[in-house]
Structures are given as C-alpha cells and as structure tokens.
Design a protein around this nucleic acid. Structure first.
Length: 479
RNA sequence: GGCGCAUUAGUCUAGUUGGCCUAGGACGCCGCCCUCUCAAGGCGGAGAUCGCGGGUUCGAAUCCCGCAUGCGCUACCA
C-alpha cells in the first residue's frame, strides 16, 4: 500500500466487540485501499467516555487482525497523523470549535439536556420536526451573562446555514438535503468533549482522508459533515455509503438470531477468510462469477462502486456453506492444527490427524468437531434398528468372520485397514451380499451408530486391538 | 411529523446506454446418481405477475410520476 494519495479509514467506537456489520465496513475500506493502492487508517472513536473502554479497543484490534485485515496507520502502529485515538485529540477539536465560535459559525447554547428533551417531545407531539428551536442562536449579551451567572455551562452549537446541501455519493449518486431539515447541532459539549460530527470532520480533514466509506446510517449525517468542512475551509473527501447489514427479521443485526460479533463466529469455528468472503458477497458479485474467494483474490477484483445499494439480510446458511468451502481449501496440516482448539479432548490422541482427515468433508464449522468425532469414542448403546443389523443372521456371520480375519491379519494405518476391509468385502460380495449388508453391522458394532466416518478410518484409528474388543463385546451380546 | 435511502424467488445477487430477459447465477429446499453410512461431489427440479398504480414507447425489470412498505437520520450516542 504505497501512496497514490488515496487514504481511507475505518473508525470504530470501542463500545463493544467487533460486530459483523462493522467488520463489513472495515472490509470494504480494506478492499478499497488494497485494490486501489491506497492507505488505510484505523481511528478509534472513543469520545464517549462512559461507553468506551480500552478493553474493547484491544478486542476490536485483535478481531480485525484475526480476520486478516491490516492498516497502515493506527493507535497500535502509529503514523504521521496521530494520535489515532480521539480521546487523545480533544485539544485539537476544542481549537477548531472555538475557531468556529470566533467566526460566528457556531454559538454558545445554554439549554440543558432536560430542556432540550422537553422541546423535542413537545415538537413531536405537535407534529413539528424535532429540530433545535434556535433558542440560543441570537442570545443577547445580557441574557447570556445572566445564564452564565446561574452557573450554566454552555455547549457549542453549529449555526447551520441556509440553502440546500448536495453531494454526489459514489453509490447513490446526487443526494440533496434542504438545510432546514438539518438543525443546529452540538460541536462541543458543555463538558468540553467534542461532538461526533466535529471530531469526525476534523480528523478526516487532518488525517488527509480522501474517501469516506461507511454505512448508510451516516448518509443523513453527511450534510452536517459537509457543512463543517465548508465552515472550516477544508476540502471534503468523496463519500460512499454502503448498505446496512440486516437481521433475518429485517431489523438491525441482534442477538435474537444468534451470533453477531466476529469473536463469536471465531469461537463457533468460522474461518476468517470465509467470514470476509461472505461479508463481501453480501453486496458485491465478483465480475468473474467466482464466488468462493480468498481475501487477496477479492482485492484483485474488487470495485467498491459496484456494490449493491439495497440492504443485505444476513443468511447464516450461506456463511456456513462458504465456511465449508474454505475449510476444504485448507491444507490438512493446518486443519488438524486448528482442530486441536475445537476438540481438545481428542487432540492428544496419537491418530488425531487421521480422525480429522476422516471427517474433514463433513465439517461446516469447527465447533462441530467433537460431535463428528464421537464415533471414534465409546460406542453408543444400540437402538432397535442397530440391533437388527448386528443380531440378524447375516450380521452375526459377518462379525464372526471379521473377528477371525482381523485377529489373523491385523493392520497398521489407513492403507492396511483398507486392505483388510476390501478382502472381507470381497468374500461376502462373492456370496451375493451387498456391500452395505457387510459394512453396516461392522460400523454399528464399532460405533453403535448408522452414520459416521468411513470404516477404513474407523479401523485405522481404533487399531486391531480396540476394533476386535468392540466387535467381541457386541457378539457377546452385552451392549 | 420532516428529510433521506432502498424495493428482482425464503436469502444474496446478474441485469445498469430500454428489445438477445419466455429474467441469469449462488445459498437454502426437493429429487436422482455416486457411495459401506453421513457428508462431499455430479445431475436435475420447484420457486420471481422484477413492491403497487399510472404514464412515455412499436417495445420497460430497465425511463418519468404517484403510492405503499422497510430502513436510516432527525441526541450534549457514534
């Protein structure tokens, strides 16, 4: 990522763990920077002291890194435009806020939050827009000093000018907002902390951001930001507002439909590349039509202006499908390595690698591993159907023959197991039996279940001794 | 209430200069094949009056207008 002048940013608020929706915004910025040779800035928007925490900041950075995203500047890596934490930039915001005040572009507002709340409620009740009513817009000096004498601390409010605000969104085209619908907004709180809009604009300007790529929930905030750029005398960046990520219910993503954060998905055993792939595919269809892609591949073909502008509904089934695809692309050694974390009880097994290989095509999310490996453990008690397979005339014959053959031949490893099995199969196929009739009793004797990994793997993992023990236990009738 | 954005099958999406769209692909669903089981894989199927109503046009998913619905903003949250 070297400079061709393009600079984008991802600006999370550390008020919780990284949400999939935020991760999607981060991804679009990353893909844009990557595909266009620009630089990506990570900026932490922690002006809200009550809700922000350093722990969440760490968690967000950890999750972004886990996803495989990286950035050129940020609180953790530094850079020429720091600090990259808004809480460390209050002086900067204050300076600009007072400059606007001095220039008459902002004014002191003495209304208390309670008063404002009341005004808003009244306006709504009377069917008027709940905008700031301008009480303090042209406050006479004497009125001001008396409010000041009451001990009221003023906030600084931006004086929104008349006229329309129009801009060209990279996705939506021209968008126009009548400024009468905007309303004077706070740029500096009465306690000295900056308002969101001021902080964002000052930072985007000072950090040299050329393209702001963010969620559509900010589309209506953009006129405020443009007004601020104008008043401050900075050139505004280009804007692109991508669609929002919705719940299956059509609302904002919430716990109601399951996991919503990146960390939860990691715990469930989703691969970072699958998550990224899925999030990108939610609004983007690769020109080549190839859907399963690694992050670097996506960066190669990505075009942020080709994103769909309609909202995207989260579909877990499709994420699972992609996860399975990416899991299959993983080298076995890496899969086995990852599997250890999700199946710690099995990880110590000398043939753990073989076990994982046996079930690899069945895995959709890694957290299913313990269940998938279950057949390698203690056989399940036999149900009616299973008993029929095993205690039927054919079943008994097969198990007895198997015991004899297995005890005589033995095997070591997968190839050996395959050999001994195909020999057994041949014997019975020649007698007119179907393969299923010969293998099902065996499978059930070994696992107690009708479904599971291929028999060859079962034998290879269990080894001759344990295999024989299990079959004999069934033959002795005690299950 | 005001303003803004969005609207193709259950879901994601192709379609963007109107005709090759009797609307293409993917997930999911159903069926068949393969197979020692479950998966995986292969093949096939059902599923969309392109939100609704007008208009422009020889012709509209594609252009215009209205409506409806959803979402967002309208905070001393971000």
């Amino acid at each position: 990522m070297e400079g061709n002048g393009i600079r984008v940013r991802f600006a999370p608020s550390p008020t919780g763990e990284l949400h999939l929706g935020s991760a999607r915004t981060a991804l679009f910025n990353w893909l844009f920077a990557r595909s266009r040779g620009g630089r990506l800035v990570l900026r932490v928007e922690d002006t809200d002291r009550e809700r922000s925490s350093a722990a969440f900041e760490d968690a967000i950075i950890r999750d972004l890194r886990w996803l495989g995203l990286d950035w050129d500047e940020g609180p953790d890596v530094g850079g020429p435009y720091g600090p990259y934490r808004q809480s460390e930039r209050f002086e900067v915001y204050r300076e600009f806020a007072f400059r606007l005040l001095d220039e008459g572009k902002a004014y002191r507002c003495y209304c208390t939050p309670e008063e404002l709340e009341g005004k808003k409620r009244r306006a709504l009740a009377e069917g008027r827009p709940p905008l700031y009513d301008g009480t303090c817009r042209e406050l006479p000096e004497n009125r001001r000093s008396s409010l000041e004498a009451e001990g009221r601390k003023p906030a600084l409010r931006f004086r929104v000018r008349e006229g329309n605000i129009a801009f060209r969104d990279l996705l939506h085209g021209w968008v126009t907002f009548p400024s009468a619908t905007v309303g004077d907004f706070i740029i500096l709180r009465s306690d000295g902390r900056p308002g969101f809009h001021l902080a964002v604009v000052v930072d985007d300007a000072l950090m040299g951001i050329t393209h702001v790529i963010r969620g559509e929930d900010h589309l209506s905030n953009t006129p405020r930001h443009l007004l601020l750029f104008e008043a401050l005398g900075f050139d505004p960046p280009s804007y692109l507002h991508h669609s929002l990520l919705l719940d299956p219910g059509g609302g904002k993503m919430s716990k109601r439909y399951g996991a919503v954060t990146v960390r939860e998905h990691r715990d469930l055993g989703y691969l970072p590349e699958a998550i990224l792939n899925y999030l990108a595919l939610l609004s983007w269809s690769p020109p080549g039509g190839k859907e399963v892609m690694r992050p670097e591949e996506m960066a190669g073909e990505f075009d942020v202006t080709a994103l769909s502008s309609s909202p995207a509904v989260f579909d877990r089934a499709r994420l699972r499908w992609l996860n399975q695809k990416h899991l299959k692309m993983l080298p076995l050694s890496r899969l086995v390595d990852m599997a250890k974390d999700y199946a710690p009880d099995w990880a110590g097994h000398p043939r753990f690698g073989l076990m994982v290989e046996a079930v690899r095509d069945s895995i959709t999310v890694l957290s299913e591993l313990p269940a998938l490996l279950q057949p390698f453990g203690e056989p399940a008690p036999l149900g009616d159907r299973e008993q029929e397979w095993v205690y039927g005339e054919i079943g008994q014959r097969i198990l007895e023959t198997a015991v004899a053959r297995f005890a005589e031949k033995g095997w070591d490893g997968l190839e050996g197991a395959k050999e001994v099995l195909s020999e057994l199969k041949r014997t019975f196929l020649e007698k007119g039996l179907h393969a299923k009739e010969v293998f099902m009793p065996l499978r059930i004797a070994l696992t107690g279940r009708e479904a599971g990994p291929p028999l060859s793997y079962l034998l290879a993992v269990l080894g001759p001794e344990e295999t024989l023990a299990r079959i004999r236990r069934v033959l002795s009738g005690r299950c």
